[in-house]
Every structure is written in C-alpha cells, then in structure tokens.
C-alpha cells in the first residue's frame, strides 16, 4: 500500500514477557505483545466484538483474552479463538531493531 510506514512504537523492555501494552498512533490504537519466547507482535488495539482495549486483557500462551467478555484471539495470526469473538483481529508486521520495537502500519 502507498502509505505503509514503519513507526517506532516502544522500547523492547517496556513490554514484559507474556504481556501486552497499548500503543496509540494518531487516532488509532494498537496492542503490542511480547511472547514467552521473546517474539514481538502487533494487532489492532480494540477487540472486534466491543470497543475495549485488548491491552487491558491477559496474555495466555499465544492468545490475548479480552478483559470484558473473555473472547480470545491468537495474537500472532489474529484468528478468533473463543466466543463471543468471531471476527479476526488485524495484525501488523513488527521488528525489533536494536531494542526498539517498530510496527508497520498504513
């Protein structure tokens, strides 16, 4: 896409292992994840079911659980994993460059 760009989102150490933080950019909100094996991922920040920040939810293995209704997504693929969510979550490419986490958005 024409407007794709890499944005520096945070420092790698700002996210704890098996955790998630919120990242706002312009009028958009994202969720950034760090897995137990130290990989980083990014998805849209709001749950696809209701407008709640996924970053307030709990990372359980490779999944993020919505803090309100306990719907779950695979945060690496965005796939909906548990009701009530049924619409997949959009994911974004992430890179860790010398301890800075970058996210590619459009």
């Amino acid at each position: 896409m024409a407007n794709e760009q890499w944005i520096a989102a945070c420092e790698a150490e700002e996210i704890e292992e098996e955790d998630v933080i919120r990242f706002d950019h312009g009028d958009r909100t994202f969720a950034l994840y760090r897995s137990a094996d130290d990989q980083y991922y990014a998805t849209d920040g709001y749950c696809t079911h209701e407008r709640f920040h996924l970053a307030d939810g709990l990372v359980i293995g490779r999944q993020i659980e919505c803090p309100k209704h306990n719907g779950r997504f695979d945060y690496a693929t965005g796939e909906a994993k548990r009701a009530p969510v049924c619409v997949a979550l959009r994911t974004y490419p992430v890179k860790n460059d010398a301890g800075t986490i970058w996210i590619k958005i459009d």
Binding site: A55, G57, L58, E65
Partner: peptide
C-alpha cells in the same frame, strides 16, 4: 480502578 485491573483479576 482502571480497566487494566481486569488483567490482575483474571490471574
């Protein structure tokens, strides 16, 4: 408190 209490309560 903040919606983030959800994470702790879940644990």
């Amino acid at each position: 408190g903040h919606p983030a209490v959800a994470k702790e309560i879940r644990l």
